[in-house]
């Protein structure tokens, strides 16, 4: 079994107004030095797959087909063996 963790962020050249707004809010609260904030999605799940290579291929396909829209988003993921 594996714990799968997927991070999805807007691509670098796509404006992220949410990140900008939250970054400004932090600055207004006195947290200085915060920049380039991007807010995305974090998805985690457990997979019963035992073969890491096969799982990696599957998760990539999940990201490309469903979890991310690669027109606007980029993704990366990690696999952690839990059993």
């Amino acid at each position: 079994m594996y714990k799968v963790k997927v991070h999805i962020l807007l691509k670098d050249d796509v404006l992220d107004p949410q990140g900008k707004t939250v970054s400004n809010a932090l600055e207004n609260l006195g947290f200085i030095g915060v920049s380039n904030m991007r807010i995305g999605k974090f998805i985690e799940f457990t997979s019963t797959e035992s073969d890491e290579k096969r799982l990696s291929k599957n998760v990539k396909e999940m990201c490309e087909k469903v979890l991310a829209n690669t027109v606007i988003e980029k993704y990366d993921f990690s696999l952690e063996r839990i059993q």
Binding site: L10, L15, P17, Q18, N69, V71
Partner: peptide
């Protein structure tokens, strides 16, 4: 229709949020 790929591009959150 953009998600399906029948149309090009994508729709994002409004810049005003």
């Amino acid at each position: 229709l953009t998600e399906v790929g029948l149309l090009p591009g994508a729709l994002l959150h409004n810049d005003s949020q």
